[in-house]
């Protein structure tokens, strides 16, 4: 096996890709093997897939479907399990920010979609994550009428609480937590939303109703239960801590004990 003619071996890699191909939601999927002879270490992982797709299109084959949008690590669209790890081997990194220099010439890489019943495969590597949208619609927002923008100092938020809320708000809703969880649980995602809003004055009035309805919506989508493996935290590209899950457990317990369905705090404020 010699380096491809005309290329410096250091600038070009041969990569074998084993990619999950599935024509549609009800079709049987399989791993398909593709060999790429001219991968630049400077390419991002998604650019490498773009190159593969251009070749497949030129050859008249169906390109590999995968989700992507911003390609700068903030939108949460990209969603690949690479060699068994959600978003690939780089810590705190979405797939779009994973680069081929992480790999070596001759490597074989397995690419699969997020796998969870609540995230059914649409095609190839694209899964339907609308379950997250329905959980958000159940209470992941502030329903109180906040009025016009207030003076910045009118509502004081202590710095440590603002920091913790911000850490939870960093969640981009990509679903890597579900993909990485041995039980396909969505606890880290829901916990991030519950913890983010419960710690801020705008979100606090509805914290109890939110905790109950978001947990209920999560259960209705068929995600698994959390058994505290903490694989989610290790896979999260935004470093969301499982401390938020403990906070959600407290929020839920508090809400189960004290929430009063008839008197809504939101309307009272």
């Amino acid at each position: 096996m010699s380096a491809a003619a005309g290329h410096d071996a250091a600038d070009s890699m041969r990569i074998t890709l084993k990619v999950w191909r599935q024509e549609g939601p009800d079709r049987r999927g399989r791993m398909e093997t593709y060999r790429l002879a001219d991968v630049s270490p400077d390419m991002s992982f998604l650019e490498m897939l773009d190159v593969l797709n251009e070749r497949l299109i030129a050859e008249g084959d169906d390109p590999v479907a995968f989700d992507h949008d911003c390609r700068e690590g903030i939108c949460g669209a990209c969603s690949l399990v690479i060699d068994g790890q959600a978003h690939g081997p780089e810590a705190l990194t979405t797939v779009c920010q994973l680069h081929m220099r992480r790999y070596s010439d001759g490597d074989t890489i397995h690419v699969e979609p997020w796998r969870a019943n609540a995230f059914p495969v649409v095609k190839d590597l694209v899964v339907d994550r609308s379950a997250f949208d329905r959980i958000m619609a159940a209470g992941g927002f502030v329903a109180t009428h906040a009025g016009a923008a207030q003076d910045a100092n009118a509502i004081l938020v202590p710095k440590p609480e603002a920091d913790r809320a911000m850490d939870a708000a960093a969640c981009i809703g990509c679903g890597a937590c579900v993909a990485a969880c041995p039980n396909a649980s969505a606890m880290l995602f829901v916990a991030a939303k519950v913890a983010h809003l419960a710690q801020l004055p705008q979100g606090a009035p509805e914290r109890e109703r939110r905790a109950l309805s978001m947990v209920h919506a999560m259960d209705a989508e068929g995600f698994g239960n959390c058994t505290n493996h903490f694989e989610c935290m290790a896979a999260c590209p935004k470093g969301i801590s499982v401390e938020n899950i403990a906070r959600m457990n407290r929020e839920f317990l508090r809400a189960a004990l004290f929430e009063r369905p008839t008197a809504t705090a939101a309307e009272g404020g």
Binding site: G84, E112, G224, N225, A235
Partner: peptide
Amino acid sequence: LTLENLQARRSGYVVRARRGGSTTGSLTM
């Protein structure tokens, strides 16, 4: 919980790698 968790991912991964969260104890509960 075990039954529900098995149900939540009926189609499993071809390749699976742990990232360091789970332990022998946690995976064999």
